[in-house]
Nucleic acid binder design. Structure first.
Ligand SMILES: [Zn+2]
Ligand SMILES: [Zn+2]
Ligand SMILES: [Zn+2]
Ligand SMILES: [Zn+2]
Lengths: 155, 155
DNA sequence: TATCCAACTGATACGGAGTATCATAATGAT
DNA sequence: ATCATTATGATACTCCGTATCAGTTGGATA
């Protein structure tokens, strides 16, 4: 049986490191009028525990006590509030990962599944310009980068 | 209306303008060992008749006499042989369009659904470089650009 | 032209991913 | 403690795409 993460609010026992993340996200959601519920915390906690971009179904499997619809709703909310990013693999499988805020793109390793952020990249400006040259007003874009991370690189 | 260059192959009755396209694609497929079949021609013809990126289901609806599985298989083959591109909309809906060969990206208009190609863009080199800086070996990428085409631009 | 096999087709059924519904439960403001 | 609002979860559903498989067709060969 799983010993559930007990909610410690201000006493001596240290909580799992992800607890701070969960609290932070819950706080952000509260600010926007969303409630602090047990299933929602479980979803956030499970998402934070993943080491790789994960699928909604993986989260469902990791949370047998949370309804499937609730997991999907939770993820959708987290994406809407930009706490979680969507990641699209080459085979169009949709995965998620905790967001590091701000606009960025993902370097996705085909070998180990790792995801790294590519920020501070002027791709966006370049695209904007290239689009404008074609008389196109760019309002957004979707960019995923596939390959191999440093650890999995082929010599 | 656009008067297309009709390919006259030695007889008097002009065929629909798309016939040349169909013949060309069928020829390419034949070269690779794929057969020239009636349903396959119908799929290619219907694809060529679309003015906007289209969904597989739209093609099925346009081809009631062709089995659904055949339409899907036909599209898959056309994508594999690079006669057709996949286009991913912002809501992750998958659409297709005849390919203009070579690597390129799409400028997708949210207002009218039009798609224009963005070629001759050095985004790829920039990405490659940015990825390399992060120790990442880029092998591919997915990029779609959303916004408004010249006709639908907001002043 | 007849033969023959691999490729193709289409009806059907299946599976995965995500959402609509709706009765019930929990939250948090008062 | 009350109560309106929001959230939950079981279920059923839709949508997209694919596996299956018996029957058909294309086209190479003779
Ligand atoms: Zn981006
Ligand atoms: Zn890796
Ligand atoms: Zn591309
Ligand atoms: Zn437009």
């Amino acid at each position: 049986m799983i010993t559930a993460a007990v909610k410690h609010t201000g006493h001596r026992h240290p909580r799992p490191r992800s607890a701070a993340i969960v609290d932070d996200i819950i706080a952000q959601l509260s600010q926007q009028g969303y409630r602090d519920t047990e299933p929602r915390r479980l979803v956030i906690n499970a998402a934070a525990a993943q080491r790789r971009p994960f699928t909604a179904e993986e989260l469902c499997a990791a949370l047998p006590c949370v309804g499937r619809a609730t997991v999907y709703r939770g993820l959708r909310l987290l994406v809407e509030t930009e706490q979680v990013c969507r990641v699209l693999l080459e085979d169009r499988e949709l995965r998620y990962q905790l967001s590091h805020q701000g606009h960025h793109h993902h370097l996705l390793c085909a070998a180990c599944g790792a995801s790294a952020d590519l920020a501070n990249c002027d791709v966006d400006a370049l695209l904007q310009e290239a689009a404008a040259t074609a008389g196109f007003q760019m309002s957004g874009h979707w960019l995923e980068i596939y390959g191999r991370c440093a650890d999995c690189a082929v010599v």
